[in-house]
Amino acid sequence: MASETEKTHALLQSCSTESLISSLGLGIFCLVADRLLQFSIIQQNDWLRALSDNSVHCMIGMWSWAIVIGIKKKTDIGEIVLAGFLASVIDIDHFFLAGSLSLKAAITLPRRPFLHCSTVIPAVVLTLKFTMHLFKLKDSWCFLPWMLFISWTSHHVRDGIRHGLWICPFGETSPLPFWLYVIITSSLPHICSFVMYFTGTSQVMSSKHGNYIHV
């Protein structure tokens, strides 16, 4: 159990200059990347638009998790890549709903596919945490539910600027203002870090990464 001094140090680390600069950089990246994707050369090509959009999802997921854990070891790179994969793999449900590998079919769906329902995120996170507890994986893989949460949430929030959030069974919100998307995305690693701290996950991960989680 961490002492009060250690807990205070962990919380101070969460507001470190390094983490705040990284979050500012993430916000700027979101702003610039989504503006660049509006160029006609990208919008007029389905494959280029889809790959570019998915790549931005991936980069935001990677950047967000890098802020959460910091990059202290080479092994941290694997986690960061996994976070990017989780942030981008959601879009595979477009092809499942389309019942086809055709990109045209996948981007012209009559409704949103199931992984784009935001209610799915807490359901999957809680199920994952329960499963890990059941199989006694809560220490070695304790980061996974939080990684999935931050990766999928960043994807949903970014999609929200075009389509709003789909919150089953309550329906859809209005499209999110662009400024709100940037603020939420750049703040998400800090929110995740604080929740991890209060649930005790950050203390377990600190021994794994050799430092306190410093968002």
Score class of each variant (00 low, 15 high):
C58W: 05
C117I: 10
M205Q: 12
H209E: 07
V124N: 00
L11P: 01
F178H: 14
L86C: 12
Y181L: 11
V89H: 05
L115K: 01
K138D: 09
M1S: 08
S22M: 07
K73I: 04
S193E: 02
C142I: 06
I167D: 01
A33D: 04
K136C: 11
L86M: 12
A33K: 10
H155I: 08
I41H: 14
G78P: 03
L128R: 00
L36G: 15
M196V: 02
L20W: 10
H116R: 05
V182P: 05
I150N: 03
W47A: 15
P189S: 08
T75L: 01
G27N: 07
F198V: 06
S100P: 11
A66H: 05
L165W: 04
F96R: 12
G70H: 03
D34W: 12
K72C: 08
I21R: 10
M59Q: 11
K7H: 01
S100R: 13
V81I: 15
L180C: 09
L86F: 13
T201F: 00
I167S: 05
L128V: 06
D93K: 00
L134D: 05
S22D: 12
T153Y: 03
V32K: 11
L97A: 09
H94W: 03
F149T: 03
L31E: 10
A2G: 01
G210V: 14
I42L: 12
S207H: 14
S187R: 06
R111C: 08
S174T: 09
G171R: 03
T108E: 08
L36W: 14
D46W: 09
S3V: 00
S88D: 09
C30Q: 11
L31W: 15
S207I: 11
I161S: 10
Q44G: 12
T199N: 09
H133Y: 06
K74M: 10
L165P: 04
S207W: 09
M196E: 03
W141H: 03
M147E: 04
L165E: 02
F114G: 06
I90A: 06
M147F: 07
M132A: 08
T153W: 05
H116E: 03
E18Y: 05
G164W: 00
S102G: 14
I92H: 11
I121Q: 04
L126Q: 01
K7L: 05
I28D: 04
R49E: 12
Q38F: 10
G171P: 00
A98E: 06
T199A: 00
Q38D: 14
V125H: 02
F135W: 06
R158C: 01
K208W: 11
I191V: 15
F85L: 14
W47T: 15
P110R: 13
H163M: 12
M62T: 07
G78Q: 02
A33C: 13
P110A: 11
T75D: 07
I191C: 13
G200P: 02
S186T: 15
F130M: 09
H214F: 07
G27K: 01
L82S: 06
R162C: 06
L11F: 08
Q38I: 13
H155E: 08
K7M: 05
A87K: 08
P189T: 09
L101W: 14
I42A: 10
F114D: 03
